[in-house]
C-alpha cells in the first residue's frame, strides 16, 4: 500500500491541479492577511472558506482523480498487489496531497505574518486539523461515489449533489425541524443532528473555539455539559474520525467485490 501511496502522491505532486489548489490557498492566505492585517479576523474568514470550499474541492478532486486514473488502476490490478492496497493507497495519495496543499498553502502566509507570535495559533491549528479531516472525509466519500458509478457524468452529479446537501440543504432542513418542533426539548436532538453531518461537526469544533461565549448562553443542561466541558470536543473529534473511517472501510469493502 505504501508503494501505491508513494506513486499516487508522486503523480499528484506533479499534476497541475495540486498546484492550482496549493496556489489558491496561498493566494487566499496572503490576500486575507494583506486586507486585514489582523490574524484573528483572517482566521474567522478562513473558517468559512474551510467549511465550504475544502469539502467541495476534495469532492470534485477525488471524483476527478478516480475517473482519470482508471487505466492506471487497471494496470495496477494486474500486478501482484492487494486490491485494498491499491485503492487505499490511491485514496491516501489524493487525500494526503490535498491536505498538504491546504496546510502549506495556508500555513506559509500565516507563519510569515507572525503566527507563532500570536495567540491565534490554537484557533489556526484547529482550523487546519478540521480542514484535514474534511479533506479526508470528502475525498473518501467522492471515491465511494466514483467507485459505485461507472458513468462519469452521473458520478460527478452525485458528488456535487452530496456536497450541496451536506453544505447547505442539511442545515436548512435542520433549522426547519428545530423551528417546527420548538415546543419540545430539542437540545439532544440538535446536538445529535450536528454529528450526522461532517461539515456541521467541523463547524461545532470551530464554534467551540470562536463562539464559546455564545454557546454557553443556552439553558439546556445537555448543551452545557456538551459545550462547557471537553465532552463536545471529544465527541466531535471522535465522530470526525468515525466519519473518516466508515467511508474508507466501505471503499475497501466495495473495491474487493468490484469487477474491472
Amino acid at each position: 500500500m505504501l508503494k501505491i501511496l508513494k506513486y499516487s502522491f508522486y503523480d499528484l505532486m506533479r499534476s497541475r491541479w495540486s498546484y492550482v489548489y496549493f496556489l489558491f490557498y496561498l493566494a487566499l492566505g496572503f490576500v486575507l492577511l494583506f486586507l486585514n492585517q489582523d490574524l484573528s479576523k483572517a482566521v474567522i474568514t478562513l473558517m468559512n472558506v474551510i467549511i465550504v470550499l475544502v469539502p467541495l474541492i476534495s469532492t470534485i478532486f477525488g471524483v476527478m482523480y478516480f475517473y482519470n486514473s482508471k487505466e492506471f488502476t487497471e494496470l495496477l490490478l494486474a500486478q501482484p498487489l492487494k486490491r485494498t492496497s491499491i485503492f487505499l493507497g490511491q485514496y491516501l495519495g489524493v487525500a494526503g496531497s490535498l491536505t498538504l496543499s491546504l496546510v502549506l498553502g495556508l500555513g506559509i502566509p500565516f507563519v510569515l505574518y507572525g503566527l507563532f507570535r500570536s495567540d491565534a495559533i490554537w484557533d489556526f491549528s484547529l482550523l487546519l486539523v478540521t480542514g484535514a479531516f474534511l479533506t479526508m472525509i470528502f475525498t473518501a466519500l467522492a471515491f465511494n461515489i466514483a467507485l459505485s458509478n461507472e458513468n462519469k457524468i452521473k458520478g460527478f452529479g452525485y458528488a456535487v449533489l452530496m456536497w450541496l446537501f451536506l453544505a447547505v440543504i442539511y442545515d436548512g432542513l435542520f433549522l426547519l425541524s428545530l423551528i417546527i418542533f420548538e415546543e419540545y426539548p430539542l437540545d439532544s436532538f440538535s446536538l445529535a443532528a450536528t454529528t450526522f453531518n461532517p461539515i456541521d461537526l467541523s463547524r461545532t469544533l470551530i464554534l467551540l473555539k470562536l463562539d464559546i461565549s455564545a454557546l454557553l448562553g443556552y439553558t439546556g443542561a445537555v448543551f452545557k455539559s456538551y459545550f462547557g466541558t471537553n465532552l463536545g470536543l471529544f465527541v466531535s473529534l471522535g465522530m470526525l474520525v468515525l466519519w473518516t473511517i466508515l467511508p474508507v472501510w466501505r471503499l475497501a469493502y466495495k473495491s474487493k467485490r468490484k469487477d474491472f
Binding site: 473558517m47 468559512n48 467549511i51 465550504v52 453544505a167 447547505v168 440543504i169 442545515d171 436548512g172 435542520f174 433549522l175 428545530l178 423551528i179 420548538e182 430539542l186 437540545d187 436532538f189 440538535s190 446536538l191 443532528a193 450536528t194 461539515i199 456541521d200 463547524r203 461545532t204 470551530i206 464554534l207 470562536l210 463562539d211 455564545a214 454557546l215 448562553g217 443556552y218 439553558t219 439546556g220 448543551f223
Partner: peptide
C-alpha cells in the same frame, strides 16, 4: 432573531445556510 425564538438553533451559527 431565530436564536432568540428557538435557542437550540445556536448550533447552526456560522453555517453556510445561515449566511445565505
Amino acid at each position: 432573531y431565530i436564536v432568540n425564538r428557538t435557542p437550540e438553533t445556536i448550533v447552526l451559527l456560522r453555517s453556510l445556510f445561515m449566511d445565505i
